[in-house]
């Protein structure tokens, strides 16, 4: 057998649209959890957004949180259970808009949690409205003429912002549109968990993901848009790594 789906992932179909980046993100997180052998120690927080049903897809303990409050819920879980590995999985509306206060303060406290932040530049679940991460000129159902900076502000660069906080030990932005980028993303997810296991501080991985239905394009066109439109605005890379050096899987 050359490839077997991770045990941490339930063997079920998801509700995600064809070509949606969430499926890849779920699988990578679960592969890393299997490889680190931590499935029985993981406690996860699912967001409000497209990934609200993540607890039906993951084979470990998961709670929901109110919209945007996942980092606060995770704080309560981790502070009471320092032996567990706690992560949140949040979209851009959840994390960057309604939950901006929670993510900034959890990061600033250096909470020993791992945050996986799916940036697909719009609100997918509610039908494609503008998010803080929506690109300039991008048409959404609430920016029908395209986002204009003077009116709706600029695309929010969450990882760059959080990198400034002393509580943050690992901050990276990756993308999920090509095999190479997916391998890089998996390494970053691995490092985010290892950062927590080393108690080095708060870890966040932003994942640029395609949302073909929200963007009104085909899945193939959507991954081209990630490359051509998103990456120039949201540069990829490791922005901060304060944890002690770790060996990454090749």
């Amino acid at each position: 057998m050359k490839y077997q789906p991770p045990h941490a992932l339930q063997p079920v179909s998801t509700h995600y649209c064809a070509g949606c980046g969430h499926g890849v993100a779920h699988r990578l997180i679960c592969e890393v959890i299997d490889e680190l052998g931590i499935r029985e120690r993981v406690l996860a927080v699912a967001p409000v957004g497209c990934a609200v049903l993540a607890y039906d897809y993951w084979n470990f303990d998961v709670t929901e949180a109110a919209h945007g409050r996942a980092p606060a819920v995770a704080t309560g879980m981790k502070r009471c259970n320092p032996d567990k590995l706690v992560f949140t999985y949040q979209g851009d509306g959840d994390l960057a808009a309604i939950g901006a206060g929670e993510i900034v303060n959890a990061a600033n406290r250096g909470e020993l949690i791992s945050v996986f932040f799916i940036n697909n530049a719009n609100y997918g679940m509610t039908g494609g409205q503008m998010a803080p991460t929506t690109l300039l000129g991008q048409k959404t159902t609430t920016s029908p003429a395209g986002r204009v900076a003077r009116r709706e502000g600029w695309p929010m660069k969450v990882v760059e912002m959080l990198t400034q906080l002393d509580g943050v030990a690992f901050a990276a932005r990756c993308a999920l549109h090509t095999p190479k980028h997916i391998r890089d993303a998996k390494r970053a997810i691995h490092t985010a968990f290892v950062t927590q296991m080393q108690e080095a501080g708060f870890a966040i991985v932003e994942l640029l993901a395609a949302c073909p239905v929200g963007w009104g394009v085909t899945p193939i066109q959507a991954i081209e848009l990630v490359e051509q439109q998103m990456i120039p605005v949201y540069p990829l890379g490791v922005f901060k790594q304060a944890s002690s050096p770790v060996s990454l899987p090749s």
């Binding site: 057998m1 050359k2 490839y3 077997q4 045990h7 992932l9 998801t14 995600y16 499926g23 095999p179």
Partner: peptide
């Protein structure tokens, strides 16, 4: 050729690659 590129990009875990030269049983960890 078992490169797993398709497995990596598939959002739905709809693709697996089997290898009959491998004796390892397809058991879950």
């Amino acid at each position: 050729i078992g490169c797993l590129q398709c497995v990596l990009v598939c959002p739905d875990v709809a693709i697996t690659v089997e290898d009959d030269t491998d004796d390892e049983q397809p058991t879950r960890k």
